[in-house]
Amino acid sequence: MNSAARLSVVVVTRERLHAPDYHAYSSILIERAVAAAVQSGWQVDVVAAQDEGRDETLRRTDDSAALLILGGEDVAPEFYGAARGYRGEGAHAERADEAQIALVQRAVQRGTPLLGVCRGHQIIDVALGGTLIQDLGEGSSHRHDDVPIERVMSTHEVHIAAGSRLLDGLGPVAQTRSAHHQAVDRLGAGLAVVARASDGLIEAIEHTSAPVLGVQWHPEDPGAPRGQLAALLGTLAVPASLAA
């Protein structure tokens, strides 16, 4: 495989025996992201961080030209200095947390283009010393609770900052699909907020010098606007001068 065209798509795990419906829906999102990346010209390698662990995940992605970290379980609270026992807490994937945090830190150090989606967006923040809002509470507009998994996504607007280097292709307002009950709180080192929801929640962050972008929403969802996923995948081909 030509490393110059290799995109590593880093997911949490290959299977969730404890949550088959969730895993089936997650697999649809992964398949759509992979298909869009292939259509954009990437050679894709899917890496399951929980199954591979930190060292193998780093090895598998060592010479990749770009990285895409997709959604999944809540980041374990100990990685951002918080406690367990919060509302809506489910199973965690600590090996995936450790591996993906190390991956983000290396990407920033090397200037490797990286896009984080939902959990991947939160991993970027935590990897650089940021914290998370652990639960948005009942009635949040960012997901539908107590519904079948295929109806969990919520549609809402996000407002994009005019100074964003990596999100400018989406225009000032974007329609998004999301299904999160957590959000970025305190920013990690080197990060800037580049999009917010109407309620003020942080919806996208980018690094001020490295080509690293995180979005809280799911451009790979079947209900997402046409072309949005391709536009975000396009940020993974940003010129190396962006990281200077």
Rank of each mutant, 00 (worst) to 15 (best):
D51K: 05
R54N: 01
R54T: 06
E56V: 13
L58T: 00
L58A: 05
R59D: 06
R60N: 08
T61D: 02
S64T: 14
A65Q: 12
L70Q: 13
L70F: 08
G72M: 10
E73W: 03
D74I: 08
V75T: 14
F79M: 06
F79L: 11
F79S: 11
Y80C: 11
G81M: 08
G81I: 05
A82N: 08
A82E: 14
A83N: 13
G85F: 08
E89I: 01
G90C: 09
A91R: 13
H92R: 10
E94Q: 12
R95Q: 15
A96I: 11
I101E: 01
V104S: 05
V104F: 04
V104R: 04
R106F: 02
T112D: 01
T112P: 01
P113L: 12
L114Q: 06
L114S: 03
G116P: 01
V117E: 05
R119H: 06
Q122P: 08
I123K: 00
I124W: 01
I124E: 07
D125I: 02
V126G: 03
V126K: 08
L128F: 02
G129K: 05
G130A: 02
T131I: 04
L132E: 00
Q134P: 01
D135C: 05
D135V: 02
G137W: 00
E138P: 13
G139V: 06
S140A: 12
H142P: 08
D145P: 04
V147T: 10
I149R: 13
E150C: 07
R151A: 15
V152R: 15
S154T: 05
T155S: 15
H156P: 01
E157F: 00
H159L: 13
H159M: 10
H159P: 04
H159I: 13
I160D: 00
G163F: 00
G163M: 00
G163W: 00
S164I: 09
R165Q: 14
P172A: 04
P172N: 05
P172R: 02
V173R: 12
A174W: 04
Q175V: 15
Q175I: 12
R177A: 11
S178T: 14
